Simulated assay, not measured.
Amino acid sequence: MQFGIFTVGDVTPDPTTGRTPTEHERIKAMTAIALKAEEVGLDVFATGEHHNPPFVPSSPTTMLGWIAARTERIILSTSTTLITTNDPVKIAEDFAMLQHLADGRVDLMLGRGNTGPVYPWFGQDIRQGIPLAIDNYALLHRLWREDVVDWQGRFRTPLQGFTSTPRPLDGVPPFVWHGSIRSPEIAEQAAYYGDGFFANNIFWPKEHFKRLIGLYRERYAHYGHGSPEQAVVGLGGQVFMRRNAQDAVREFRPYFDNAPVYGHGPSLEEFTEQTPLTVGSPQQVIDKTLTFRDSFGDYQRQLFLMDHAGLPLKTVLEQLDLLGEEVVPVLRKEFAAGRSAQTADAPTHAALLARQSPQVPE
């Protein structure tokens, strides 16, 4: 099982000081966090993609390329690559290039994003969000698997005899996760291709995501990729830790109360009760994360959001020390102990190369 962190790259004032970092400071902080993630033994660093304030990660492959040059082991991924507003040809090229530079330590999560105005900025219509996701990925999937592609779809100019370069490393495309918090169509898409499904279950109660993941597992088996237990699932999570739980709650409360993503709504106590957010001791994080398997079955990737809401870099690095030293080693052991023999391994380039990705059924 893989453990890691994801960032949305928000530039948010620190409510305890009133200071807002510059874009430059935030970008450099994100790269420092990625390096720290490898240092403490995490498996994955993932960045979001946004094209509007108050976010900075508008060019994920640029950032991940920089990180790839300074790391050796950690998998570099995205927590959203906008399949709706990016040209699938450019996605194919950019991530294949990154895959070569990182010696295969690359995968990506496709999503529609959560910012409506992005669509017209890139010449698209938000009302076509689902059809765009389906059409664009159908092309991206082919571009990585066919040397010469003829294509005619609904949303871009046709392609005739087109070859995307560079070709995927070792002939193995980057592993794709399809991320969704509400759309069964995306769970269906992930199942059809035999790709991973990532449920970023950080905002809504678990019952909603149990239905979505259950649908994905059922349809994964329907399309002949394996049993429902062999489907490849990823989950989100949010944590803030101090060795003393009361210290964690006291320190994190002003950040929670003022956070753009969930502030000014339910109380911290209500939110931690109803969602995966855990604010407390490392043991409390361990205990709550282990309950995810009870709700969703065995899964392959757990990513935590830790650098948001204006938290200063020093605090985030301290959080990563706790995560890497006290939480993840226990989670690895506990998840491995109860893991079904049928459960698929977490995706890596080496594993995909060894078995070569299965073909999509006719």
Rank of each mutant, 00 (worst) to 15 (best):
R217T: 07
W177G: 00
V249Q: 13
A199R: 10
Y192P: 00
N244Y: 01
E185W: 12
R217L: 06
A259W: 11
G194P: 00
P276A: 07
L290P: 01
Q284V: 04
P276G: 09
R250H: 10
H208C: 10
A199H: 04
P260C: 04
Y192M: 13
G280K: 05
E188W: 10
T289S: 13
L277A: 08
R211W: 14
H178K: 05
L290V: 04
M241C: 12
D298H: 05
P205H: 10
V239R: 12
P282Q: 04
A190Q: 03
D247W: 01
F175H: 12
G265N: 06
Q283N: 12
Y192R: 15
K206R: 15
T291Q: 09
F240E: 00
P260R: 08
V279G: 03
F203K: 14
L268R: 01
E185N: 12
R243A: 13
Y223K: 03
Q246H: 09
D294C: 00
Q189E: 11
T289Q: 11
H178M: 00
D195N: 08
L290M: 08
Q189R: 00
S295D: 15
W177M: 00
H208S: 14
G226Y: 08
S180V: 07
H178C: 02
I186H: 02
R243G: 06
E273C: 08
A190P: 01
R219L: 14
V232Q: 12
F198T: 00
P254R: 01
E273L: 12
T289C: 08
T289W: 03
N244F: 08
D287E: 09
V239L: 12
D298R: 02
P205D: 05
E185Y: 11
K288L: 03
G196S: 06
N258S: 14
F240H: 11
G224I: 01
I213R: 06
F256Y: 14
H264A: 15
Q246G: 10
